[in-house]
Design a protein around this nucleic acid. Sequence first.
DNA 1: CGGACGATTGACGATGATCAAAGTAAGTGG
DNA 2: CCACTTACTTTGATCATCGTCAATCGTCCG
Lengths: 225, 225
Amino acid sequence: MNRLCLPLSLNEAETLLLDDIVQRSTPIHRGGIVYEEGEPFTNLYALRSGALKGYRHCSNGNIQITDFVLPGEVFGLDGVSSGKHQCSVQALETASVCALPFDLLQQLGRTLPILQTHLMEAVSGCVQAKMEHLCLVTQYSAYERIKALILNLSKRYASLGQSALHFRLPMSRADIGCHLGMTIETVSRCLSRLREEQVITLDNREIRILKPEALRSTARPANKP
Amino acid sequence: MNRLCLPLSLNEAETLLLDDIVQRSTPIHRGGIVYEEGEPFTNLYALRSGALKGYRHCSNGNIQITDFVLPGEVFGLDGVSSGKHQCSVQALETASVCALPFDLLQQLGRTLPILQTHLMEAVSGCVQAKMEHLCLVTQYSAYERIKALILNLSKRYASLGQSALHFRLPMSRADIGCHLGMTIETVSRCLSRLREEQVITLDNREIRILKPEALRSTARPANKP
DNA sequence: CGGACGATTGACGATGATCAAAGTAAGTGG
DNA sequence: CCACTTACTTTGATCATCGTCAATCGTCCG
């Protein structure tokens, strides 16, 4: 199992143990589904390459994109508690995914306590991220939200060892809008504004960050402090 | 332990077991803190009377009210994963709280599997609620959000055996605004509109629902379906 | 080559934030 | 018990933001 798959600090023996339970899947093409809302929760997953979006049908039937998954990230934690997945996950572009059967992971967790810890941290980080996202969406303007998303992606690409300043947006404007709670037109306008202000250059989905510091939102949120 | 505290279907013997570990606290007055963000997670809590708000400091220092707690509800689940509370909880009015030491709960869970199950369901329900809330905030107009909140409170009061159509809002307009992502003025205006439309009557915080069916948002969300 | 999809841009209007003011409730101290 | 302060709420006027509608353009496919 590649270190890309789970960012754990394991020794070689431990890595081999973990390696045993990893199942590699055939590549999933654009639009392909990894799992769907309501399916029984059996695996955690790690994304090896490509990009995914997690989304959910709200009570009204609307779709809400809850998160984007980049290579090296673990996903599928929705459903640990209920035993059923609460979200669906779909490929934004051709993707390769590792499946980690959860019961085996838990078994392994008994001999490798660090695995348990990492798992817990992952769940907790996931919840925390959701709350930060809620805050972003309720308290910031569309422009600030876009800046935050770009910054977020930038940080995550950087932590994958890729360029923090030059990458390709794997998702459409519609996906961004659905994630941040705004229309595609507003997404497009905000991106154009960032381009005009020479904070970024943008060629379709190819983005280059010119002024990283301008993305760190020093601006106060829409609501009062 | 009162059945109000944990809505579990336990037999008498089991109830007695659980009763042993419950710690009742002295009443907490308006503005009092149950626990704060960052504190180590040691207890689950059940609210016996009064009302609470859960809130969080976002990365920008802003406050986001994540939820309101009504009597009979369990809270404190934030922090199960990380071991530290991710939210703070404060009393909106004089409140009485039961503390359930988590380690004892887990111990008890080994002999009472149903307790484990209920706990898991609680966590999962909590996550689900957060996602519904995200959906509400990103996709609905201020007016719809207010309707949803009233309906939500109504249902919860009903499930406590209180009137679903006549109750007192324990929180200020500012709290509502902070929870739903809008200003106090907009909150007030939406409430006034509901009054004009004779969906509710409202005397300060005393609310009476005249047309419950009008609260069930048949209206499509702000964004496209 | 043409059709479908995605993205951009403009014009317009509705929603909701902001600023301001006044009214109401609640708590405090005499 | 009342005067007074403070906090909370309501309402109005104005303005910015963002959604809607519409047209155009570019890109990716078959």
